[in-house]
């Protein structure tokens, strides 16, 4: 998982698949970032093709942490299938979702 820090914002590029297996790694890395003080996070789905319910759980956990700790996570660059997953589960209503990374970064400006 690629992590970039642009200004105050930490941009995380998600792997191609966030399924039951890889969700644990993704969660661990997010926890590391959050423990490290990251409060402005952009999750870039540009390279991501699949998110399972285990993956959704990870993002939900990050979201809840941010809500508790005055932080914010913005999702961006989602492909249609992934958007479907978020929409079907209703999670698209809970998250701030931007079309591109730039739009996402702009939300923190």
């Amino acid at each position: 998982m690629d992590v970039q820090v642009i200004g105050e914002v930490t941009v995380v590029t998600l792997p191609a698949r966030v399924d039951t297996t890889s969700a644990r790694d993704v969660e661990a890395e997010f926890n590391e970032l959050l423990d490290g003080g990251a409060r402005k996070v952009v999750a870039d789905f540009g390279a991501n093709e699949y998110v399972s319910s285990a993956g959704l759980r990870v993002f939900l956990a990050v979201l809840k942490f941010m809500e508790k700790n005055e932080g914010r996570i913005v999702l961006c660059a989602m492909q249609p299938f992934v958007i479907d997953v978020f929409q079907i589960s209703g999670f698209s209503e809970l998250f701030a979702i931007a079309g591109t990374r730039e739009e996402a970064l702009a939300l923190f400006a």
Binding site: L56, I88, S89, G90, F91, E93, L94
Partner: peptide, 11 residues
């Protein structure tokens, strides 16, 4: 058709 509703327990 879709009806609005988030997965239970999320929020």
């Amino acid at each position: 058709p879709r009806v609005r509703g988030v997965a239970l327990g999320a929020k």
